[in-house]
Simulated scan of single mutants.
Amino acid sequence: MKPMKIIAMAAAMLSLLARISVARGYIIICNVNKDDLMPCMPAVTHFSVRPPAQPVQACCSVLRTANLTCFCELENKYPWLLYMFGIDPDLAKALPGECKLNSFTRC
């Protein structure tokens, strides 16, 4: 592999690790504990048998503390990460609007 490719891959991995960190056994993604994001999962996943749910208040509360720009960067640079967790990128992008977080512009 060429040295520039190796450097680019290393930089991308460091960028990803800067956004996802582990503290005291918890996975922190964009300033939010991954477990705290669980109330959002029904709103960002869908199955063929049911449409996605509307976000619950607990989900919207968590999003108010999250770094939403960071989530956009993850979605744009590492879409496989969303798919790994079963998250539909289009539903995830719509979530701030569903929670009426008007101060956030879409990705």
Score class of each variant (00 low, 15 high):
residue 9 M to W: 09
residue 28 I to N: 08
residue 106 R to F: 10
residue 23 A to K: 14
residue 1 M to E: 14
residue 53 A to K: 02
residue 7 I to P: 03
residue 86 G to F: 07
residue 83 Y to W: 06
residue 38 M to Q: 15
residue 45 T to N: 09
residue 5 K to Q: 07
residue 75 E to R: 11
residue 104 F to P: 01
residue 22 V to G: 01
residue 100 K to E: 06
residue 93 K to Q: 05
residue 24 R to S: 12
residue 83 Y to R: 15
residue 49 V to G: 13
residue 86 G to T: 12
residue 42 P to Y: 03
residue 92 A to E: 02
residue 21 S to C: 00
residue 64 R to I: 00
residue 96 P to F: 10
residue 73 E to N: 15
residue 47 F to T: 14
residue 31 N to S: 14
residue 106 R to A: 13
residue 22 V to N: 05
residue 55 P to Y: 06
residue 21 S to L: 04
residue 59 C to G: 05
residue 57 Q to W: 01
residue 65 T to N: 12
residue 37 L to F: 07
residue 107 C to T: 11
residue 36 D to M: 09
residue 30 C to W: 02
residue 38 M to A: 13
residue 61 S to K: 06
residue 70 C to S: 07
residue 104 F to L: 04
residue 95 L to S: 09
residue 78 Y to H: 14
residue 42 P to H: 02
residue 75 E to I: 03
residue 69 T to K: 15
residue 61 S to C: 01
residue 13 M to I: 14
residue 78 Y to R: 09
residue 94 A to R: 11
residue 54 Q to K: 15
residue 61 S to G: 01
residue 13 M to R: 10
residue 62 V to D: 03
residue 69 T to N: 13
residue 8 A to V: 04
residue 102 N to S: 10
residue 83 Y to H: 11
residue 60 C to R: 04
residue 81 L to C: 11
residue 51 P to K: 15
residue 37 L to D: 00
residue 47 F to S: 10
residue 65 T to K: 11
residue 59 C to L: 03
residue 70 C to P: 07
residue 43 A to R: 00
residue 29 I to A: 12
residue 76 N to Y: 02
residue 15 S to A: 15
residue 14 L to V: 13
residue 61 S to Y: 06
residue 44 V to H: 04
residue 87 I to L: 12
residue 66 A to P: 05
residue 90 D to K: 15
residue 37 L to I: 04
residue 106 R to E: 11
residue 18 A to M: 12
residue 72 C to F: 05
residue 60 C to S: 14
residue 82 L to T: 01
residue 14 L to I: 11
residue 96 P to K: 02
residue 34 K to E: 11
residue 54 Q to E: 10
residue 34 K to V: 09
residue 79 P to N: 07
residue 49 V to Q: 06
residue 83 Y to A: 13
residue 88 D to F: 02
residue 28 I to C: 00
residue 80 W to A: 11
residue 24 R to H: 12
residue 64 R to H: 07
residue 92 A to Q: 02
residue 27 I to P: 00
residue 24 R to V: 08
residue 17 L to Q: 13
residue 49 V to D: 13
residue 81 L to Y: 09
residue 106 R to K: 15
residue 17 L to G: 15
residue 88 D to K: 13
residue 57 Q to K: 14
residue 70 C to H: 05
residue 13 M to V: 15
residue 96 P to V: 04
residue 40 C to A: 02
residue 2 K to Q: 12
residue 20 I to F: 01
residue 69 T to Q: 15
residue 105 T to E: 09
residue 6 I to S: 05
residue 91 L to Q: 02
residue 100 K to D: 06
residue 34 K to F: 14
residue 93 K to Y: 00
residue 3 P to A: 10
residue 60 C to T: 05
residue 18 A to N: 08
residue 61 S to V: 07
residue 9 M to A: 15
residue 12 A to E: 01
